[in-house]
């Protein structure tokens, strides 16, 4: 098997953020030098993100700031929380515009999606429906796992493991045409084969969470 010569992967890094509260380059230079004097080695070549949230002037001298930092061997990776005009300026001089983690987390929730699988799930296979329901048209074999943040519907025999409400949704259900499961779980509450047998699992049925315990009801599927 040939390994690809490049790969794109996400990763998070801890970066120092330099907050700029003044537009006066002379003042910034003086304060920066006194800070650097405390621990010159520590800041040598350090990557920095410049936070410009308090700068409200669109004619801010970003290029001047970059020169000051570069001349002191600090590397600007990008800027954050700046005015749109300053962002445009940053783009033109090759600086990245970085969204801070807090701003990014305010994105609207992902809409619910349903995952449909039209084949038998074989032993060793794992299917995960993130943020939604999972519909399997086929059987789920022994040793296979089907997982969904929402509900799981199986139009076939469930012989493996089924975990619904994986993200904590207590209203999720598991339905199967024939239940011979190794394990069923809803929002962390689980039953093994013997629990299913003790609770008189019907050949075809729906498993729900009632309060803190699982229940099974037969369905004429």
């Amino acid at each position: 098997m040939q390994t690809p010569s490049l790969e794109l992967k996400g990763s998070s890094f801890t970066l120092s953020v330099l907050h700029i509260n003044s537009q006066d380059m002379a003042v910034i230079t003086a304060e920066l030098d006194s800070k650097l004097a405390i621990a010159p080695q520590f800041f040598l070549g350090a990557p920095l993100v410049v936070n410009l949230s308090t700068i409200k002037a669109s004619n801010f001298d970003l290029l001047g700031l970059k020169d000051i930092l570069t001349s002191r061997q600090l590397i600007i990776v990008g800027i954050t929380s700046a005015l749109p005009e300053i962002n445009a300026m940053a783009k033109s001089i090759g600086l990245a515009i970085i969204k801070s983690g807090k701003a990014a987390s305010n994105q609207p929730q992902m809409p619910k999606t349903t995952k449909i699988v039209k084949q038998n799930i074989r032993s060793g296979q794992q299917i995960y429906a993130k943020n939604g329901d999972l519909i399997v048209i086929g059987a789920v074999g022994n040793g296979a796992e089907v997982i969904a943040d929402g509900s799981i519907h199986i139009y076939g025999t469930l012989r493996g493991k089924a975990m619904a409400g994986a993200a904590g949704d207590k209203n999720a259900v598991i339905m199967a045409q024939k239940i011979e499961a190794e394990l069923v779980s809803i929002a962390g509450q689980y039953w093994l084969t013997e629990n299913l047998q003790q609770n008189g699992a019907a050949p075809s049925g729906c498993i729900r969470l009632e309060g803190e315990s699982l229940t099974v009801e037969s369905l004429p599927l």
């Binding site: 799930i121 074989r122 060793g124 296979q125 074999g141 022994n142 040793g143 296979a144």
Partner: peptide, 8 residues
Amino acid sequence: RDSDRILG
């Protein structure tokens, strides 16, 4: 069961 795994 092993055959099922191989089919997967």
